[in-house]
Nucleic acid binder design. Structure first.
Length: 371
DNA sequence: AACCTCGACAACCGCAGCCGC
DNA sequence: CGCGGCTGCGGTTGTCGAGGT
């Protein structure tokens, strides 16, 4: 397949466009349409390659381009679409009128991606980066030392010792939950095994887009009928402080009952019960232009989403990614209605940074496979 | 005032896929 | 069916301005 000759090989101009070039290009396209991009520069009297002209037009000169800062809603849309579509910038741009794929891509790389990283969220998978979890102090302490007289299970009053990594992960999650309850929050604790499950399945499908909603609506250890919601953009509020020192100082904060109910959650995780009851879907109603505060049922959600999928080249199958049967529609999030309404990105990021979960799980757990 | 660093964003590069011949 | 041209896409680089030292 022959490649288009490079601009400089043809003596064509590269680099920033001048106002005169812009004017020539705009005038030509307004008169004749762009037609063949290959022949356009010659016809328009531009010393540019067609590729450069097309890029300039589609990314900058097009009359329907919306310039300026991304709105909060646009940012929200980008994050959600990215969690579903991945780096399909053109597909994402198709859902953001007036925004170009290049603009969205740049915005993602310079703003959103960095923020997610600071929040301990992998911007690729949209899942928590467990490598950042700071369990090391807990695990390196004498509490988890086989030779020690003290062990976590005794400390917590558990009948069974924490005999394996899975138990420890549960403990980590319990830590989250306990502390979050103290803050009178709706946060529901990350089910680390859920992440394992979700990630492995998603990766098998070569769809490394962990469902972001799993982050903002995670199973609560103490109930299997959770319907409370956490706003999507409050992801900052959903990653939590884990203070191992507090645990060490006040180990009675960890209700053992959660351990049992965790098992129930895990047991149903692969079936509809888990997702339907514990992972309400986010409100994508904005796709169809409905009010942000509206609450849609699953059918409308799926309808909206299907309209997205069907209009792209993706053979995306939403249920397959969600691993969620369509039965038992749960109440859906209306996270948009409960945003932190900080008007600036800095405020939002500040809010975020104060709530970042910081955990490190040493390799002795072999939990890197989770990440 | 000069220099340096960093962030933001425009533009380029190279690949993949589509389509006509 | 294969080839070649063209377009679109995603990753990367280059440039410029703001802020800090």
């Amino acid at each position: 397949m022959g490649r288009a000759p490079c601009c400089d090989k043809n003596g064509l101009k590269k680099g920033p466009w001048t106002p005169e070039e812009d004017q020539k290009l705009v005038e030509y396209i307004q008169k004749h349409g762009h037609g063949s991009w290959r022949t356009l520069p010659k016809n328009a009297g531009l010393q540019r390659c067609g590729k450069s002209c097309r890029l300039r037009w589609t990314n900058y000169l097009r009359p329907d381009i919306k310039r300026g800062r991304f709105s909060f809603e646009e940012e929200e849309t980008i994050i959600q679409l990215h969690s579903v579509l991945g780096n399909k910038w053109s597909a994402i741009a198709a859902r953001l009128p007036g925004r170009t794929d290049n603009e969205i891509k740049n915005y993602w790389n310079t703003h959103i991606r960095k923020r997610l990283l600071r929040m301990g969220i992998d911007p690729v998978t949209h899942s928590p980066r467990l490598d950042l979890l700071d369990l090391s102090s807990l695990l390196n302490s004498s509490l988890y030392n086989n030779s020690s007289q003290l062990n976590i299970s005794r400390l917590l009053g558990l009948d069974q010792p924490l005999s394996n990594h899975s138990d420890l992960l549960r403990l980590a999650a319990t830590l989250f939950s306990s502390q979050r309850d103290d803050q009178n929050s709706n946060f529901v604790l990350p089910n680390l095994q859920e992440y394992q499950y979700s990630n492995s399945h998603v990766q098998e499908q070569n769809q490394n887009q962990f469902q972001f909603q799993n982050l903002h609506q995670l199973p609560n250890c103490t109930t299997s009928t959770t319907t409370t919601t956490t706003p999507f953009s409050n992801i900052e509020t959903q990653v939590l402080h884990t203070n191992v020192e507090q645990f060490q100082a006040n180990p009675t904060n960890f209700p053992c009952q959660q351990d049992l109910e965790w098992d129930e959650n895990v047991q149903t995780m692969h079936g509809s019960t888990f997702i339907d009851n514990l992972v309400p879907l986010p409100d994508y109603s904005f796709y169809s232009g409905s009010d942000q505060s509206s609450i849609v049922d699953r059918s409308s959600y799926n309808s909206n989403f299907n309209s997205i999928s069907s209009s792209t080249d993706q053979s995306f199958n939403f249920p397959s990614v969600l691993s969620t049967p369509s039965s038992s529609p749960p109440p859906l999030n209306s996270y948009s209605s409960t945003y932190i309404t900080s008007s600036t990105e800095d405020e939002r990021e500040s809010y975020c940074s104060n709530n970042v979960l910081k955990f490190e799980i040493p390799d002795i757990f072999g939990v890197n496979e989770f990440v």
